[in-house]
Write a protein that binds this DNA or RNA. Structure first.
Length: 477
DNA sequence: TGAAATGTTGGGGCG
DNA sequence: ACGCCCCAACATTTC
């Protein structure tokens, strides 16, 4: 009996429970359905679409080694498309791995009901998370809202199950239904702006595993300190691979454990700050599941009446990396060029938008969504609500990042700023994070004319900080 | 997963 | 020798 495996954000063969279950029972028809309308308010941005194109290509190649191929479809109703496909190839069963965004949950629930109503079997599995969001409860039986107790609770619950192997073999269905060519999905940009992204990333499982292996051998041990340094290769850069499910969190968790068993690092690997970051991702899904309105609405209700500012010019300067604050501009340009930004710099740039410019956190979340290759509704929402101070376990309202101090602390030699803001490259490190303080002669020497070759700061941070503190203090009363 | 303002301490210069 | 002041370094409080 043929089973349709409906691929979504699980673009891998290993540790793929839906594929595993299907291959164990007979012929497999792998399907990907493009249905952007079903993503509701959060259709994939352009960078994410670029990634998806290449990831689907890799997945198809991997499936070919199993004697299968990926059937590509475009539809405005995935459920109807699946029923049609099942009829065409005689499938009686459809399986997939769960998604956890509110719109996807609603859609999948309706599809499961309609498939069963049509007399088909339909089952879903967990490929994306160490724990299901509904399985983790605090002592009162409710969801956690603070990370540390959430994490402790998960640690105490024991290790997640080991990853499943890729199917050793899979039978092809009696007939292959027609498939669109990958190019017909129109995911690749028409104008060639993706070169920076292509240079920075290798979509697909093998790229994901290469990243993980490199990270485990070179950066895991120093991660607690070096993860905050955007000028070093101190992070795993797994986020887009995890986002598309080219690698799963169970695989990451147990790869760390296996490296520890080989003696690469100590016995406390479960409590490592790297796996804590993986748990932040889990925590984000936990929150999104239990508070599904948070992509739009602040979790802390009083923030609904915060006096955000309308400042299109400020927003545009921030988006284009022309605020005059080098660490902020470097981050925003890294985002634009590569579809990714170092997490420390996300916090700095986010704090600048929300607290210095007083622009709504949702405008930052939307821009990140459109630019990021790892645009995850759960993580993006958590990150922005955190930095704005209106979310779970959020930064206290008075916590305002000083872009100059953050730059000096986390990019001490200025290598990160010099890379992404090349017009400042010749400025001595002492002035690099505050070029407006440099003596005129130093600027001239470095070939910089403020306001011409590089913007003057669009605001005075000290003034902006006081303005934010006042607005936030009023909110408390 | 802040930063600034304010307070405290202790060494050293100096009358 | 002593008190006084300055100020850097560190700690605490406050936003």
């Amino acid at each position: 009996m043929t089973t349709i495996v409906w691929f979504r954000r699980d673009l891998r063969l290993q540790d793929n429970p839906a594929l595993h279950a299907a291959a164990a029972r007979g012929p497999v028809l792998p399907v990907y359905i493009q249905a952007p309308e079903e993503e509701a308010e959060w259709p994939a941005g352009a960078a994410e679409q670029w990634w998806l194109h290449h990831s689907l290509q890799r997945l198809d190649e991997d499936l070919e080694r199993l004697g299968l191929r990926l059937c590509l479809r475009r539809a405005d109703d995935s459920g109807r498309e699946l029923i049609e496909l099942a009829a065409r190839c005689g499938a009686r069963r459809i399986v997939w791995n769960r998604r956890y965004e509110p719109a996807a949950i609603r859609r999948d629930r309706a599809i499961k009901a309609s498939l069963r109503g049509a007399g088909l079997e339909a089952d879903s599995y967990n490929a994306a998370l160490l724990r299901e969001p509904w399985d983790v409860k605090n002592k009162a039986g409710g969801p956690f809202q603070v990370f540390t107790p959430y994490w402790r609770h998960c640690l105490a619950a024991g290790d997640p199950p080991p990853p499943l192997p890729a199917p050793a073999q899979a039978a092809a269905p009696p007939e292959w239904p027609a498939s669109l060519a990958l190019d017909a999905l129109g995911l690749e940009p028409r104008i060639d702006w993706a070169r920076g992204i292509a240079a920075a990333w290798t979509p697909g499982c093998r790229g994901a595993w290469r990243r993980l292996d490199t990270f485990l051998t070179t950066a895991f041990e120093g991660y607690a300190d070096r993860r905050n340094r955007p000028d070093l290769a101190g992070t795993s850069r797994l986020s887009p691979h995890l986002h598309f499910g080219e690698i799963g969190p169970r695989e990451v968790f147990h790869a760390v454990g296996a490296a520890a068993a080989r003696g690469q690092f100590g016995a406390a690997w479960r409590q490592s700050s790297f796996l804590a970051e993986l748990s932040w991702r889990e925590f984000a899904y936990h929150l999104l599941y239990h508070f599904p309105e948070t992509p739009q609405e602040p979790l802390r209700a009083e923030f609904a009446r915060f006096p955000w500012v309308d400042d299109p010019q400020g927003l545009s300067a921030w988006q284009r990396g022309r605020t005059g604050f080098p660490i902020v501009d470097a981050g925003m340009r890294e985002l634009w060029a590569t579809g990714w930004m170092h997490n420390r710099v996300r916090m700095i740039a986010g704090s600048f938008l929300v607290k210095d410019l007083l622009l709504p956190w949702t405008s930052g979340a939307r821009w990140f969504w459109d630019c990021l290759v790892d645009a995850d509704l759960a993580s993006n929402t958590l990150g922005w609500q955190w930095v704005a101070g209106c979310g779970a376990d959020a930064a206290p309202y008075f916590r305002v990042f000083n872009p100059t101090l953050q730059g000096r602390k986390f990019d001490p030699d200025g290598a990160y700023v010099r890379r992404w803001v090349p017009e400042l490259a010749a400025l001595p490190t002492a002035w690099l994070h505050a070029p407006w303080e440099a003596p005129a002669g130093v600027l001239t020497e470095a070939g910089i004319e403020l306001g011409v070759t590089y913007p003057r700061p669009i605001l005075d941070h000290d003034t902006a900080r006081h303005r934010a503190l006042e607005a936030l203090a009023r909110l408390k009363n």
